[in-house]
Amino acid sequence: MDIRKLQRAIVNGLEDVKAQDIVIFNTEHLSPLFERVIVASGTSNRQTKALAASVREEVKKQGFSVISTEGEDNGEWIIVDCGAAVAHIMQPAIRQYYNLEEIWGDKPVRLKLSQTKTRPQARGPEASTPAKSATSAKKTTATAQKATATKKTTAAKTTTAAKKTTAAKKTIAVKKAAVVKSTTAVKKTAAAKTTGAAKKTAAKSAPAKRPAAKKAASRSKA
Rank of each mutant, 00 (worst) to 15 (best):
E57P: 03
R46N: 12
G71K: 11
I24A: 13
K117M: 14
Q145K: 11
A84W: 12
P207Y: 01
R46W: 03
K49F: 05
S133T: 14
K209L: 08
T189K: 15
A217F: 08
T48S: 08
P120A: 04
T194L: 02
Y97I: 06
I67Q: 11
R210Y: 12
A144N: 13
N26T: 01
P125I: 05
V23G: 12
V80G: 02
A156C: 01
W104T: 09
Q115S: 10
M90S: 02
Q20Y: 04
L14W: 02
S41D: 03
R46V: 13
S114Y: 07
V39N: 11
A9L: 00
K200M: 04
V11P: 04
G196M: 03
V80M: 03
S54H: 01
F34H: 15
K151P: 06
A202Y: 01
A216T: 15
P32S: 09
G124D: 08
K170L: 13
K175I: 11
K164N: 14
F34V: 14
I94W: 02
E15F: 01
K49Q: 13
R46Y: 05
A162L: 03
V80H: 03
Q115W: 06
A190G: 00
A202M: 07
Q47C: 03
K49R: 10
A87C: 15
F64H: 11
K170S: 12
A19T: 05
D2K: 10
K132E: 15
T184V: 05
T43E: 13
A131S: 15
A203F: 07
A50D: 06
S31E: 06
A206P: 00
K107H: 08
L51W: 00
D21A: 15
P211L: 00
Q91T: 01
K157P: 00
V59N: 09
K200Q: 08
D73P: 00
G71M: 12
A161G: 06
I78V: 15
A222H: 14
I103G: 10
G83C: 02
A52Y: 00
I78S: 08
L33P: 09
T183A: 14
P32Y: 04
N26Q: 07
T148V: 10
T141I: 09
K117I: 00
G75N: 01
D16K: 12
A208T: 13
A147Q: 15
K112C: 02
S182K: 14
K157I: 13
A9S: 10
I79W: 04
A203Y: 03
A147Y: 06
I103N: 10
T194Y: 01
A185H: 10
T135A: 15
T148H: 09
K157Q: 13
G124R: 07
T135G: 12
V37W: 00
P130S: 01
K209N: 08
A85C: 11
L14K: 04
K214D: 13
Q62A: 13
K175Y: 05
K60C: 06
A155G: 03
A52C: 05
G105I: 04
T183S: 14
T166Y: 08
A85S: 14
A212W: 08
T43M: 06
G75P: 05
Q96H: 12
K199H: 02
K193E: 07
A197H: 01
